[in-house]
């Protein structure tokens, strides 16, 4: 409860900071939206001559893309400090301050800054999902809604866990590590049915960096592709496992930091 109230306060503070320059904030929302529109533009250009991708209709791909954006949007809101963790916290020494407060250090790092404009991605993704849901006349029961919520949480958790693990590398490497960009680009893999990839990449996306569990597998249930139902059932398991791994790795990193300093 205490953490939740602090989180609320952090968030309120950050909104205030951003709204101190309203014009700036509007521009960042607008440019962020432009990026999202561009990515849909890409999908449109790619498919305006071809109507399906290995048996997946354009609308179905749109659904996967939209669901991906819902999770990714929320993740982007929360992940702002993770990318700059090595530089902002370890190299500039802000992590000392974090260590001096009686709160979980990861909690502080994640919730000290938010990329608020990324709510736009969440909203756009949701609009796309609703549109396809309606267009393809997919069934909609209360259970589906609950599952959709659960899948969203799992998706965000998977992204956060993966990138927390990558951030922990900054505890050990003095270089400004560029490990996140290739992994971030791999999120794009998850936006398409895994069946288009070869076995190696399918394995990678499922069990090593489980982005397929954060976007493709969750959608198969809603798209009535029941051949993937066992993967769908595993989504919460994968999310929980990676979260635990990330937390373990983080506390190891903190211990490493305590013995070496910055």
């Amino acid at each position: 409860m205490r953490h939740l109230s602090i989180l609320g306060y952090y968030f309120a503070q950050y909104i205030k900071v951003r709204l101190a320059y309203p014009g700036d904030f509007l521009i960042s929302v607008f440019t962020s939206l432009a990026g999202t529109v561009a990515s849909f533009g890409f999908l449109y250009i790619l498919f305006h001559r071809v109507s399906s991708l290995q048996g997946w209709a354009f609308e179905e791909l749109l659904f996967i893309y939209g669901f991906n954006l819902v999770c990714l949007g929320l993740f982007n809101v929360l992940s702002m400090n993770l990318y700059e963790f090595g530089e902002r916290y370890i190299m500039e020494g802000r992590f000392d301050q974090i260590m001096l407060r009686p709160l979980h250090s990861l909690f502080q790092v994640i919730f000290e800054a938010f990329r608020i404009e990324s709510f736009q991605e969440f909203a756009t993704g949701l609009v796309v999902v609703v549109y396809v849901w309606h267009k393809l006349d997919l069934p909609l029961t209360p259970l589906d809604l609950v599952l959709f919520l659960l899948m969203t949480i799992c998706g965000v958790t998977i992204y956060l866990s993966v990138f927390v693990m990558l951030s922990t590398l900054s505890f050990w490497f003095e270089d400004r590590v560029g490990v996140s960009p290739p992994v971030f680009n791999m999120i794009a893999f998850g936006r398409y049915p895994v069946t288009i990839y070869n076995v190696f990449i399918q394995f990678l996306l499922s069990w090593i960096i489980p982005f397929a569990f954060a976007s493709f597998y969750p959608t198969t249930y809603f798209l009535q592709r029941h051949e993937f139902s066992s993967f769908f059932a595993l989504v919460p398991v994968v999310a929980a496992t990676f979260l635990v791994l990330a937390l373990i790795l983080w506390s190891r990193g903190v211990r490493g930091y305590q013995s070496t300093g910055s």
């Binding site: 000392d96 260590m99 001096l100 211990r255 305590q258 013995s259 300093g261």
Partner: peptide, 9 residues
């Protein structure tokens, strides 16, 4: 100081 404050072991 960092050892006294628990930042370093």
């Amino acid at each position: 100081i960092k050892m006294l404050t628990g930042i370093l072991v």
